[in-house]
């Protein structure tokens, strides 16, 4: 298949058809901010942090879900995009209880890194009192909904990579939260294989291994993407046989 060439932030990029703008951008050193996107699981385009401007389209589009096209002209870091990202991140902080000083993920948190990258040093919004309680019913893992950014990486990893379909989202709007087995305590969720993939993909400290203290959460972020790419390679080999 012939490749396509496009411009991302004034860099010429060669890409394969089917690649996303986000994937192509990485190769020229442009890291578009994002939270819900992760290699190895499907794309949902829900966090809207990776919005980029594509010349000729009326509104910004999510870089993770926008396929590259010939002669596309993409800008990932305009003033408006920067301003919007900042507001979006501020809202994300205001939604939960993101207190780094007492979080297992301190120092290994994607939200924390993004905040530094985008320049969010305080929130203009009022964080609400925590509405949801922590689920510590699982023998090995815990889930703290007040640190959850609803990126649904865990939902997708559980369904698409582990095939267990334990996690789902319940509730609408600000009441949206994760549920195991349609609303059981995690420890009683019969479909859970305790594989820990959900914990490994969590960008914040919402899912953690029990026994880890502040700043101790060190997870294998690449676990799911590695598994997926190995499987793809393996099935390609099967086809060749």
């Amino acid at each position: 298949m012939p490749g396509v060439s496009l411009r991302i932030d004034d860099n010429e990029v060669d890409a394969s058809p089917g690649e996303s703008v986000m994937q192509a951008a990485v190769r020229v050193g442009v890291k578009v901010p994002g939270l819900c996107q992760m290699d190895g699981v499907s794309v949902v385009g829900a966090c809207r942090l990776c919005m980029v401007e594509v010349a000729g389209t009326p509104r910004p589009r999510p870089a993770c879900a926008t396929p590259v096209a010939e002669a596309m002209d993409v800008h990932t870091d305009t003033e408006q995009l920067r301003e919007h990202r900042k507001v979006l991140l501020e809202m994300l902080f205001a939604e939960g209880q993101h207190v780094c000083a007492v979080c297992v993920a301190n120092g290994a948190c994607e939200l924390q890194t993004l905040a530094a990258q985008v320049g969010v040093d305080h929130a203009n919004f009022t964080p609400p009192p925590s509405r949801l309680t922590m689920d510590l019913s699982h023998p090995r893992f815990g889930y703290d909904p007040s640190r959850c950014v609803l990126c649904t990486r865990c939902v997708r990893a559980c369904a698409e990579v582990e095939g267990a379909f334990t996690w789902g989202v319940a509730g609408r709007g600000r009441e949206a939260h994760l549920v195991a087995d349609l609303g059981r305590p995690w420890g009683e969720a019969e479909s859970c294989t305790s594989c820990g993939k959900c914990v490994s993909v969590c960008p914040t400290g919402a899912m953690f291994e029990k026994g880890t203290s502040v700043g101790q959460r060190r997870v294998k972020r690449a676990l799911v993407s590695t598994l997926t790419s190995r499987r793809e390679r393996e099935s390609a080999r099967e086809v060749l046989k």
Binding site: R48, M91, E95, T126, R172, G173, E175
Partner: peptide
């Protein structure tokens, strides 16, 4: 809109709440 936002994407989920407030 705040009550009816599905909660999937951040701008609508958090934004309608902040705007309502």
């Amino acid at each position: 809109c705040m009550d009816e936002s599905c909660g999937k994407c951040l701008p609508c989920r958090a934004g309608t709440f902040e705007m309502y407030e």
